[in-house]
């Protein structure tokens, strides 16, 4: 299964470094998912993989394909744009759902509501 694209030295260094860096950052985020104690603390670690982890892997992919096809290949930018737009939405919704459930169950250490629901 060990196989690699044929790249010049400088591109190989960039691709290898960025891929490993992105994977390490994502792994740290996943470890945080296990080690944190409460749900509200656990929401934070996955953002590591969503920001820099994805960013580094996509940069590696852009470099690799651009060098191989000797023209700028930018379609990975689509994933970057999509991930940056969507992950905040999912996390916000999830946090709000958790807060809603905690409030309706009367859990103590969550902040109360602002009175009337006035959010969007």
């Amino acid at each position: 299964m060990i196989q690699a694209p044929d790249l010049p030295l400088w591109a190989a260094i960039i691709v290898g470094l960025f891929v490993v860096l992105g994977a390490v950052i994502t792994l740290v985020g996943a470890i945080g998912l296990i080690r944190m104690e409460t749900f509200y603390e656990r929401v934070h670690p996955p953002t590591l993989g969503m920001t820099l982890g994805t960013g580094f892997v996509l940069l590696a992919s852009i470099t690799c394909f651009s060098v191989m096809q000797s023209r700028p290949v930018l379609h990975e930018v689509l994933i970057a744009v999509f991930v940056t737009i969507t992950t905040p939405i999912t996390l916000m919704l999830l946090a709000r759902a958790a807060l809603y459930r905690d409030r309706s169950e009367g859990v103590q250490d969550v902040p109360g509501d602002f009175g009337d629901e006035g959010d969007d």
């Binding site: 953002t47 920001t51 905040p88 946090a95 602002f114 959010d119």
Partner: peptide
Amino acid sequence: AVIITATPGTLWVQHDARRKIIL
């Protein structure tokens, strides 16, 4: 909201338009 949530370590939870407070 996107900036605050995308930055690791901070998470936007709720916004009250009338009292102008965010949680």
